[in-house]
Design a binder for these strands. Structure first.
Length: 281
DNA sequence: ATGCCCCCACATTGGGGA
């Protein structure tokens, strides 16, 4: 079972690239971030034509998340369903559309677009930490011990210095600060595994390259897009790859997809009716 | 480097992203 995450930086601008990649890779579940479109204008039909079901949680211009699945999608939750148990400033944490979750083929799929935070002295940084604290409480509420969980998305955090092209320049700054990493660790609470690091221990592997400064051509990237799986799925994890060739498309997203292969039984009665001819070249 | 690029919208400039 192939599960992917991709910050596409506008689903409408990137639609043909996403469709081409789906036809090439044939993922079972694709989680999108930064769709940047209201639900009524989401191009669902293009995915449904390929045999996928689509759930969306979007807004105008900014943010927006979606899950595209070959399997029946159940128990859909849009935004946080928990109250704020973390204290802090009074905010409507669901105003920005950054979280969508559901149950698919026996898995709990949680798709997040964590706020960037701008810089560590910004109000947006406080919002980012607050948002991560909500996510931690949400997982406490939603995830039971034996649940099979995939927590995926754009986290806007490099988990360690080996996830940054020039750590000595960026360590301690936005996406690389101690407080952000502690907030992320509090979300994971030792109950999740970073799929990518099961297979690759070295630096030099990125999922995001800034549009500016010729960053991709210079391979100056960060690894900020992650697929975390619950520990009870670890024996099923067969691979995790970053599809960096998608960053070489014409008018690419600044992020590349991240893809895992989980060897789990499929509930074929839940499988949507797919015309296999659509995936032939 | 307060710059760079890219997306969106009450658009031809400004806000936001990472």
């Amino acid at each position: 079972m192939l599960i992917a995450t991709w910050n596409v930086n506008s689903v409408r601008t990137r639609l043909s690239q996403i469709i081409n990649w789906i036809k090439e890779v044939n993922p079972d579940i694709l989680c999108l971030q930064e769709t940047k479109v209201i639900d009524d204008a989401f191009p669902s039909s293009h995915f449904e034509e390929l045999g996928y079901e689509v759930i969306i949680h979007g807004q105008k211009s900014y943010n927006g998340v979606a899950i595209i699945s070959k399997f029946k999608i159940e128990n859909v939750k849009k935004g946080f369903t928990n109250e704020n148990k973390t204290g802090g400033i009074s905010i409507d944490i669901n105003e920005q559309k950054r979280l969508i979750s559901a149950e698919i083929n026996g898995l709990k799929i949680i798709n997040v677009y964590v706020p960037n935070g701008s810089s560590i002295d910004s109000e947006k940084y406080d919002y980012k930490i607050q948002w991560l604290n909500y996510l931690s409480a949400f997982l406490d509420d939603q995830v039971k011990n034996d649940d099979l969980v995939c927590l995926v998305g754009d986290f806007n955090i490099a988990p360690s210095e080996i996830d940054i092209h020039t750590p000595q320049k960026y360590e301690g700054g936005i996406m690389a600060s101690k407080i952000e990493r502690e907030a992320l660790n509090n979300v994971l609470k030792g109950r999740f595994i970073d799929s990518f690091r099961i297979f690759e221990k070295n630096t030099g592997h990125w999922s995001w390259w800034d549009y500016r400064n010729n960053a991709y051509e210079l391979n100056k990237g960060w690894r900020i897009d992650h697929i975390y799986i619950s520990k009870n799925l670890s024996s099923k994890l067969k691979s995790c790859v970053i599809e960096r060739n998608q960053r070489e498309n014409l008018q690419p997203s600044d992020h590349a997809p991240v893809l895992i292969n989980l060897e789990i039984d499929s509930h074929y009665e839940d499988y949507l009716d797919v015309d296999d001819d659509l995936f032939e070249i």
